[in-house]
Computed example of a mutant assay.
Amino acid sequence: MPLSNNLTAFMNFLAFMCSIPIIASGTWLASKPDNECIHLLRWPVVFIGIAIMLVSLTGFIGAYWKKEGLLGVYLVCMALLIVLLLVLLVLAFVVTGTTGAYMVPGRAYREYRLEGFSHWLRDHITGPDNWGNIRACLADSAICLKLNYQYVTAEQFFAADLSPLQSGCCKPPTICEYQYMNPTLWINPTHAIVDTDCSIWSNDPSQLCYSCDSCKAGLLGNVRKEWRKSILILIITLVILSWVYLIGCCAYKNTLNKANSKGHK
C-alpha cells in the first residue's frame, strides 16, 4: 500500500477517534441549563462531530482498501466540511467581536447592555420573532430560583460569579438601586426610576426581569461566552482536517495512477 494511503488511513482513524470527544463535549454543552432555551446554538458541535466521524470513516475505508469511489466521495465531503468549518469560524469571530459587558463597582459579576453586541445576534436571537419563546422557556427553567439556595446574604450574592444570564435576568440592574432581600426578591426604591428595566422588574418568580433588555443582553453574553469556547475547537479541527484532506488527495491520486497502470497492461 502506498505511503500516502497509509497516512490517510491513519489520519482518518485519528480523526474518527477525535470525533468522539467532540460529540461528547457538544452534548454536554447542549445539556447545560444556560443553553437549554437557545435551540439555534444547542447542537452545532454535535452535528460537526457526527459529520467528522462519518467522513473520516469513509476516508479510512477508502484509503485502507484502496476504494477509488469511496476516496472520491470522501474528498468531496471533506472539502464541504472544511468550507463549512471555515464559514462557522468566520461567523463566530464576527458575532463575538464585541461585548456588552461592563463592570459594576462593588460587584464581582458583570452586567450587560444590548447595544454592546452585534446586530446579527440581536436580530436573530433577541428579536421579536424569537424572544417570546425564549422568555417563556427561561421563566419555566430553574436558572434563577436555584440562586436562592446558593446565596443567603447580600455580601455573598454581590461577591458571586454569576453567569451573564443570571446577572441579566434574575435581578434588577444595579442602577435601579433596589434593596436586596434574597437573589430574586428586591425592595423597590423610593426615588424616580432611572432605567426602563427598573419598572419592568417584578418579584413574581415567573416574571423577574425576563422581559428586560438586561435579560436579552445577558442571554447574548452567554451566547458569546459559549461561542468563544467553540472557536478554539473549530480552529484545531480545521487545521487537522486540512492536513488530512491534502494527504487524502495524494492517496486518491495514487489510487487513480494504480488503476490506470493496470488498465494499460
Results as ranks from 00 to 15, higher is better:
A192L: 06
D129S: 10
I200P: 00
L162P: 06
G168C: 09
I193L: 09
A160K: 01
R110W: 05
H191E: 04
L145T: 11
Y109W: 10
C137V: 09
A160T: 10
P173K: 10
G116W: 02
G127T: 05
C169Y: 06
G132A: 15
P173S: 11
G218I: 00
T153S: 15
C209V: 01
Y109P: 00
D213F: 07
C215E: 02
Y102I: 06
T174N: 10
Q150K: 15
Y109I: 00
Y151C: 08
M103F: 08
N133W: 09
R113C: 04
V152R: 15
P205L: 11
D140F: 03
N130Q: 14
A217W: 04
A154C: 05
F157M: 05
I193W: 01
K171V: 04
P164V: 03
S211Y: 00
I200Q: 04
T126M: 03
K216D: 00
T190Y: 08
D197K: 07
D204I: 11
R122G: 11
D129I: 00
F117W: 03
C144N: 07
A159H: 10
T196L: 10
I134A: 11
E155G: 01
L138P: 07
V104D: 06
I134Y: 07
Q166E: 13
K216H: 05
H119R: 14
T196F: 10
C170A: 04
A101K: 03
N133T: 13
Q179Y: 13
S214C: 00
L114W: 03
Y178W: 15
V152N: 14
E115H: 09
R107P: 04
L165I: 15
L208R: 09
A159N: 14
M103V: 13
T190D: 13
V152F: 11
C144R: 03
N188T: 13
A139P: 06
N203E: 05
T99E: 05
I200R: 10
D195M: 05
I143T: 12
T196I: 12
T99M: 09
C137A: 11
G132C: 04
Y102F: 15
I200S: 03
V95P: 02
A136P: 01
S141R: 07
A192V: 05
Q150T: 13
S141D: 13
N133Y: 09
A217T: 02
D161N: 13
D123E: 13
L145S: 14
D213Y: 09
I175T: 08
